[in-house]
Write a protein that binds this DNA or RNA. Structure first.
Length: 347
DNA sequence: CATTAGT
DNA sequence: ACTAATG
């Protein structure tokens, strides 16, 4: 009387256990900055199942430079940054670079969070850096295609930088270098013309409120002594300050929402500004080839503060601290029957 | 190009 | 939704 088909409990539970272990290994390896789903899977498949394993030469040698840095600071980087720590770093930066830079903190700090996962530093400079034209065509709503690399405009300007160009860039020369020599910057994860990502050692003040000696800080960095945190430096053209403040303050859902709104109004919003599409003169429509060459171009709108951009989008001012969770798009004096978005993830 | 990261 | 850097 046991017509029940027999299952195989031994095999099933063993399988389940191995699945759990594998998942745990994948999650663990992804604690290292720069290690994502693909790299973690490759490592686990190769037999690397722990942070300690990752330091073995056979695995370590497969890591990128950024992943090696991530591994070096894996015990420190996940630690949250307090507002006080962020403000200390901000003070230090202001004291150690040219006063021509206007320095702000974005991210969850600006949204009022008590602690943040990292520091998002925004640097405005009145002269340096130019504003790149968006790489998408206006009809992207229908044909989601980008302008091809054969476009005379897009092919060149956004291209890569040589090492020499990189070191001559204002972000590196005028910001990263002094902050490194000052003993703030401990390691670089990635660095380009307008974005630097890396690790800083929190500067400390002595009993008299004086910073540590510069030479002391540099030694402490080399000895891995102190508190290390993630920081991003963003160099922003003056004209892009409003768009950059919006983009770098977030949160993600807020950014998506106002960008969607811009698109619905036929505009394009990115961290460089609010753009409107300018069609080319039809000029002489006769005899034109089947493929119209240039349909038009994106032109930067005047709106260069957060207020102006939001106003242009028909959105009333929203305090940064209100950009965290549910927020309303549309007229505030009307019913609340407008789009409300929830949140999911925050550090 | 894919991967990772960032709001 | 959209962009930057790496390899």
């Amino acid at each position: 009387m046991s017509p029940l088909p027999k299952v195989e409990p031994a095999r099933t539970s063993k399988q389940k256990l191995e699945d759990d272990k594998r998942r745990h290994a994948l999650d663990t390896l992804q604690l290292v900055t720069g290690v994502g789903a693909v790299k973690a899977r490759n490592l686990v498949t190769a037999g690397c199942t722990s942070i300690a394993d990752m330091r073995k030469p056979e695995y370590y040698s497969t890591l990128t430079e950024a992943q090696k840095i991530g591994l070096r600071f894996v015990g420190q980087i996940p630690e949250p940054v307090t507002r006080e720590q962020a403000e200390t770093v901000l003070d230090f930066i202001r004291e150690n670079i040219s006063s021509k830079f206007e320095v702000h903190l974005g991210g969850s700090y600006r949204r009022g969070a008590p602690v943040s996962g990292d520091m998002d530093v925004i640097l405005f400079h009145p002269t340096h850096v130019h504003v790149p034209t968006p790489n998408i065509s206006h009809s992207s709503a229908f044909s989601n295609r980008k302008i091809t690399g054969t476009s005379p405009l897009s092919s060149k300007s956004g291209s890569r930088m040589t090492k020499a160009e990189r070191e001559a860039s204002p972000l590196i020369k005028d910001v990263v270098q002094p902050l490194t020599q000052g003993g703030l910057i401990a390691a670089t994860l990635s660095t380009g013309a307008r974005k630097w990502q890396g690790v800083v050692r929190l500067p400390e003040k002595d009993k008299d409120g004086q910073w540590e000696l510069m030479s002391e800080r540099v030694k402490l960095v080399e000895a891995d002594k102190g508190f290390f945190r993630r920081m991003d430096l963003n160099l922003v053209p003056w004209k892009s300050r409003g768009a950059a403040m919006l983009a770098l303050t977030g949160d993600i859902e807020f950014n998506k929402d106002i960008r969607l709104k811009a698109g619905q109004l036929g505009m394009h919003l990115n961290e460089f500004g609010l753009w409107r599409w300018q069609s080319n003169e039809p000029e002489e429509p006769e005899a034109n080839a089947e493929e119209a060459q240039q349909e038009g171009s994106w032109e930067l709108m005047e709106a260069d503060t957060e207020e102006d951009i939001l106003a242009e989008l028909g959105v009333d001012w929203i305090e940064p601290t209100k950009r965290n969770f549910a927020y309303v798009v549309g007229k505030p004096t009307k019913k609340k029957a407008t789009t409300v978005k929830g949140k999911s993830k925050e550090r």
